[in-house]
Nucleic acid binder design. Structure first.
Length: 840
RNA sequence: GCCCGGGUGGCGGAACGGUUUACGCAGAGGACUUAAAAUCCUUGACCCGCAAGGGUUUGUGGGUUCGAAUCCCACCCCGGGCACCA
């Protein structure tokens, strides 16, 4: 018998799979297509972390399974190679980011290949290669030509010492992560993509996707559609010079509560405050508050949520258009300038934030909505108190829901939903739909990214680079360190260019694109990865897309998906795609935590290196263990000893399998037909068929942990049973194959096969074999199990009840429960093939 | 603060209205070995009991049900996410 030597066989098959291009995908095939996508990694200097092989193993299992089920599976790998960490690292070690990135990518490729993932390597892509980013640039120009890329001022984090813009993640407690200097906010002209134009479609098209519900909800929340009204509050005692708008406009989702609006609040950055300066009696106090607020980021303003601050604009008042009462105007940083109109009407009785603010500053609270009656006509007072208190208390409770109006003039008694429209109309307001989503900022003042293919001409303004001149290649630089301007601006050879329109002197855009742009369309490139003439061939993409299965980390549930969906819809509108949603089915991968249960991180010292695990055990063992650890989408801790279990399983499986083949090859010995018979033991054929069914179902449902366990149960049963026949052995190695493809393929070839298991059909299970002959029934008294018996599966209800009533333990329990001998129980509940419950 | 997950043996987990703890790890006992590793067999929630057996147990407290880890309500704890979005 050949010994199990995983090192040798894994190396052998990894080489063969690559050399023979076994997993090369055909664009034209008689088989149905299946497109499986996994997040292409960002190749960091640290190499793969445990999350990569976990997600990739799951997808590889699924891909191999789908191939065996007869699909032509598009399954690929690529590199999201542009990005900040590589640039930072290159600067630190004084090298060219191109070189650093190449080394990292080579290392990632080596690691990924060690696991034997069945990619079509001829379709490998790299976002940092000019062949790829030419089309990222092309896409950007397309967006620009359609008016979906535009420039506007936006705030950036600026480090005055390093003379550079910092990403949010480089800002630690308001200081630069590199030098600790306090950051400043600067406003710069930057490129934006108009994703807001697609807000409604991005929301509506979520319906019908096979995505986790929580992910759909996060997309919805991010888009943040709210229907409300724009209402104007006239200023009562001041006219703004040179401004005919002598009113403050607010956006509210609750115009039905207008009668309860007892003050207004402006965001500190609201432009109207400057215009009102002459009328504000406490200007110095207001100015100081605004100054303080300007040093806070939106994020910091959120974190201070509990302790609301604000200043009244003394001397100016507004008029509630419904009640005609004068109400005060405040400035407070819990109102954001970037949402709605930057001003709100405060209704403290019906909004928690307004409620807290009003209590803190002693502002009036007026209740204008009460919960709808549960019984029509009878006021529901207790629901407002969470169902607890018998009557409605005065000011100190809050009702944020809709209901029926009170204290609202002519609208009293009206339903909230009806009142929304009617009150809005009565004060001359307009109904409006507001979105939370903002346009996508794509300018980055960094080097290691896609150069923005635009030219700034003093005569013609902004001119896109002609398509024939693409790509605009990222040039090597003398110095990658930032020096007060984007790194590319330091290269005269790059920056100075002739205007494509007038031929005069002009300058290139010195900034690069957000790397999310690179990854927002990569899945469209795999179907046609080397096309030099087009972003992709429409027919090829029409064949493969949309993606049938996408596995991503939960951290990508908002932005990457939203951007990819946006770009897909855009290219659809441009006539390049026939569909509008890129990812039909989505599944998430849970983190692998450190052995201590915390997230793996260098600083905690709990990082496990996949290279070491493969070296110590094997790729197959690691694959199986990653799947066995727990539910795929749960975060599970890595237990270094647990892998011994699957390692033992693989060794035992090998021993069983190779041993059985060996015995089959030997000539029949006297006494037993075929030489391997042990006639007194039943065969494990039924167990095998159960496993075939279970493993297939579990792969489809992404329940890899129980699939592995099903294989283990099968092996336990096989070892105790008579050896399997040859055709059953074939099925057996096939169901192992997706999980441990190296071992399975080697066993397959040991049987004398020279085909690849991936293209062998997945075995069918025989339902007749799986049917249970004997079943275990529970006898319960008052819901407590008193005995279990083994009976024929075909037994009928009456026979079972009779058995139960005759059962000695049952009778003891019945007597203990107070049932007189011979008396009939209250009820007998029978659940087919499960139990009998006798209720006394 | 809000939103989304989740609390089951010593540990990872299984079951997701019907016999709790499948499978694996760790532990205990044994076989083989000069010995160790490897391998194999037995055992395996907790409490009482020599045993047979009985009782308790799925974060806590209630509820629905013949029956609840599973459904409902409240609370506690852990993980992740966040937008004070009017």
């Amino acid at each position: 018998m050949q010994a199990y030597d995983p090192k040798k066989i894994e190396e052998k098959w990894n080489k063969k799979w690559l050399a023979d291009k076994v997993f090369k995908v055909a664009d034209r095939s008689a088989k149905p297509k299946y497109y499986q996508l996994e997040t292409f990694p960002y190749p960091s200097a640290a190499g793969l972390h445990m999350g990569h092989p976990k997600g990739y193993t799951a997808e590889d299992i699924h891909a191999r399974y789908m191939r065996m089920r007869g699909y032509e599976v598009l399954y690929t790998m690529g590199w999201d190679a542009f990005g900040l960490p590589t640039e930072n690292y290159a600067i630190k070690v004084g090298r060219d980011p191109h070189e650093v990135a190449r080394e990292n990518t080579d290392n990632f490729r080596r690691q990924v290949q060690m696991f034997g993932f069945s990619y079509d390597w001829d379709r490998e892509i790299d976002t940092s290669s000019p062949e790829y980013y030419k089309w990222t640039q092309w896409l950007f120009i397309r967006l620009y030509k359609r008016g979906l890329a535009y420039r506007k001022g936006a705030k950036v984090n600026w480090c005055p010492k390093d003379q550079t813009v910092l990403a949010n993640e480089q800002v630690v407690d308001g200081t630069c992560e590199r030098c600790g200097t306090e950051i400043e906010e600067r406003t710069m002209e930057q490129w934006f993509l108009k994703i807001t134009d697609y807000a409604d479609r991005l929301l509506a098209d979520l319906k019908g996707l096979d995505w986790p519900a929580a992910t759909i909800k996060r997309q919805e929340d991010w888009i943040g559609k709210s229907e409300g009204a724009l209402l104007k509050f006239p200023l009562s005692n001041i006219q703004i010079p040179n401004n005919d708008r002598s009113s403050i406009e607010v956006f509210t989702t609750r115009p039905d509560t207008l009668f309860g609006a007892t003050y207004l609040v402006l965001a500190p950055e609201h432009a109207l405050i400057d215009e009102l300066k002459g009328g504000i009696a406490n200007w110095n106090e207001v100015a100081a508050y605004r100054e303080a607020a300007s040093h806070k980021t939106d994020r910091m303003r959120q974190e201070d949520a509990k302790d609301k601050t604000g200043v009244e604009l003394k001397g100016v008042m507004a008029i509630n258009p419904a009640t005609k009462e004068e109400i005060p105007i405040w400035v407070a940083d819990y109102v954001l300038g970037s949402y709605g109109t930057g001003a709100i009407m405060a209704v403290p009785a019906h909004d928690e934030r307004d409620f807290e603010f009003a209590k803190k500053f002693g502002l009036p609270i007026r209740k204008v909505v009460v919960p709808k009656p549960i019984i029509p006509g009878v006021p529901n007072v207790s629901a407002a108190m969470g169902g607890a208190a018998p009557e409605l208390r005065a000011e100190e409770d809050l009702w944020e829901d809709v209901g029926d109006l009170i204290n609202s003039g002519d609208f009293t008694g009206m339903d909230s939903d009806q009142a929304k429209a009617e009150i809005t109309a009565s004060v001359g307001g307009i109904l409006k739909t507001q979105y939370k989503i903002r346009d996508w900022s794509v300018s980055r003042q960094r080097y290691w990214g896609v150069p923005i293919p635009m030219v700034h001409c003093p005569k013609c303004g902004i001119v896109p680079v002609p398509e024939s001149d693409l790509p605009v290649v990222l040039p090597p630089l003398e110095n990658y360190r930032p020096q007060g301007m984007p790194p590319l601006a330091s290269s005269p050879a790059f920056i100075n260019v002739k205007c494509p329109q007038c031929g005069g002197g002009a300058k290139r855009d010195a900034e690069t694109l957000d790397t999310f742009v690179d990854s927002s369309w990569y899945f469209l490139r795999y179907p046609d990865p080397h096309n030099a003439a087009e972003i992709f061939d429409k027919k090829k993409v029409a064949h493969w897309m949309p993606v049938d299965l996408y596995v991503i980390g939960a951290e990508h549930t908002v932005m990457h998906l939203l951007y990819s969906r946006f770009i897909t819809k855009f290219l659809h509108d441009e006539g390049y795609l026939s569909f509008t949603e890129p990812f039909t089915k989505l599944r998430h991968i849970g983190l692998i935590m450190g052995a201590d249960g915390a997230k793996m991180s260098k600083s905690k010292g709990n990082v496990v290196n996949p290279d070491e695990i493969v070296a110590e055990f094997s790729a197959d063992a690691m694959r199986m263990y990653l799947m066995f650890l727990g539910p795929f989408d749960d975060a599970t801790p890595w237990d270094a000893r647990g892998i011994l279990g699957v390692e033992r399983f693989l060794k035992r499986f090998w021993k069983y399998y190779a041993g059985t083949i060996e015995r089959m090859k030997q000539p029949a010995v006297s006494g037993g037909a075929g030489g391997a018979a042990a006639p007194e033991k039943p065969s494990a054929k039924a167990a095998l068929h159960r496993a075939i069914k279970k493993v297939g179902e579990d792969i489809e449902a992404f329940k890899f942990n129980t699939a592995v366990s099903a294989l283990m149960i099968l092996l336990n049963e096989m070892e105790a049973a008579a050896p399997l026949a040859e055709d059953d052995l074939v099925s057996l190695v096939k169901i192992l194959h997706p999980f441990a493809p190296h071992a399975a393929q080697e066993l397959w070839s040991l049987m004398g096969n020279n085909t690849y298991l991936d293209f062998e059909p997945w075995p069918a299970h025989d339902p007749a074999l799986i049917a249970e002959i004997k079943i275990s029934l529970a006898f319960q008294v008052n819901g407590r199990t008193r005995d279990t018996v083994s009976v024929d599966a075909s037994i009928g209800e009456d026979a079972v009840k009779e058995l139960a009533l005759a059962n000695e333990k049952v009778n003891v329990a019945l007597a203990a429960a107070g049932l007189a001998p011979g008396a009939a129980p209250k009820r007998i509940i029978y659940v087919d093939k499960k139990l009998v419950n006798i209720v006394v």
